[in-house]
Nucleic acid binder design. Structure first.
Lengths: 161, 161
DNA sequence: CGGGGTAGACAACCTGGTTAACCATCTGCT
DNA sequence: AGCAGATGGTTAACCAGGTTGTCTACCCCG
C-alpha cells in the first residue's frame, strides 16, 4: 500500500487550489469586492487581453457566448466594465474595463501573489519554484492565464456560499 | 515580476487535479463504468467507511442529506449499492455496497494510483513524495479521504460533458 | 405516554452552465 | 448592386447539482 494514494494526491491538488482561491476571495470581499469570484477576475483579464466582445470572451473562456454574456452582465452591473457600441460594427458592444475593474485586477493579482509568497515562506521559495515546475510538467501545457479552458469556469464558482 | 504568478500557481493546482480526474474518468468509462464521476467513488468510499445512511453520507460529504439522497439514487440505479430496510430502526434505509460497487472502488483506486505512478515516472518517485508532503503542509489539514468537505462535490462534477 | 430529535421524502428554488432560435448587421462573391 | 452566409447579441427553455423548508414516520428519553 502506497504511503499516499493517487486519490489523496488528487484531493491534495484540489485542496491547494481551493485554499488559494478561498483566501483570495475572502480578502477581496474585505476590500469592497464582495461577490466577486475568481472567474470574474479571469474574465476581466481576458477582456483586457483583447477579448472585448461577448463572443470573444466566450471563446477565450471556453464557454458559450450566452454564458459569457451572463458574466458580462455581472461585471457591468458591478461597474467593472462598460459596454459601448462600436462605431465600426453596429452588431458589437465593445467591452471596456473601468477604473474599478482595473483596481480589481490589480488587487486580485496582488492577493494571489500574496498567497503564493506565504506558501513560499512555509516551504521555501526555491522549493515552491520546483513544485511549480514539476506541476507544470505534469499538467502538460501549463494552462496559461490567457486562454482558460472551459472546464475552469465551474470550478471557480462559489461553493455553497 | 515573479517568474510564476500566484494566479498561475492556482491554475496549475487545478489543472493537476483535472488531469488526474479526467484520466481516471476516461479509463473508468472504458471499463464499463461510464457516467461515473469521482464524486460517486468518494461517496461509495464513505459508505464503505460507515456512512450507511443518507443523512450520514450527507454529513461525511459535507452536503445536505437531500443532495446525498440524489447521489444515492444514482448509485442505486446503477447497481453500485443496495438499500435495505434496517430491522433495528424502521426509519433508516441501510446502504450496502454491491459486488459491482466493490469493483468500482477497486478499479477506481487502482486507476488513481496508476496516474500517480505515471507522474512518479515523469518527475521521480521521491520528488513526487516531496511534492505531496509539501502540498499536504500547505493545504493544512490534508483533507483525508474519509471526510470530504462539501465544496468538493461540485468540483468533481463533469464539465460540459 | 408524551416531547424532542432524527431519517427520509417531496417540493420549490438558485446558480451557472447548455442548446436552440431569432434578429440585426457585416462581408464576400457574383 | 444585391444576395448568401457568417457573426454578434438577445431571449428562452432546459439541465445538473446543489440549497432550504416542510412533512411524516419513527426512536429515545424523562
Amino acid at each position: 500500500m502506497p504511503e499516499s494514494s493517487g486519490a489523496e494526491l488528487a484531493l491534495l491538488l484540489l485542496g491547494g487550489f481551493r485554499s488559494m482561491v478561498d483566501a483570495v476571495q475572502r480578502e477581496l470581499a474585505e476590500r469592497g469586492h464582495g461577490g466577486v469570484r475568481p472567474v470574474h477576475e479571469f474574465a476581466l483579464r481576458a477582456i483586457g487581453a483583447g477579448a472585448d466582445t461577448a463572443s470573444d470572451l466566450g471563446r477565450s473562456l471556453g464557454v458559450s457566448k450566452q454564458a459569457a454574456a451572463k458574466t458580462i452582465a455581472f461585471l457591468e452591473t458591478h461597474d467593472y466594465i462598460r459596454r459601448e457600441s462600436d462605431p465600426d460594427d453596429a452588431r458589437r458592444k465593445r467591452l471596456r474595463i473601468t477604473r474599478r475593474g482595473d483596481e480589481l485586477l490589480t488587487v486580485g493579482q496582488a492577493l494571489f501573489d500574496d498567497v503564493r509568497a506565504h506558501w513560499g515562506r512555509q516551504i521555501g521559495a526555491e522549493e515552491l519554484e520546483v513544485l511549480e515546475a514539476q506541476l507544470a510538467r505534469l499538467v502538460g501545457s501549463g494552462y496559461p492565464l490567457s486562454s482558460i479552458p472551459g472546464w475552469l469556469a465551474s470550478e471557480l464558482g462559489e461553493s455553497a456560499s
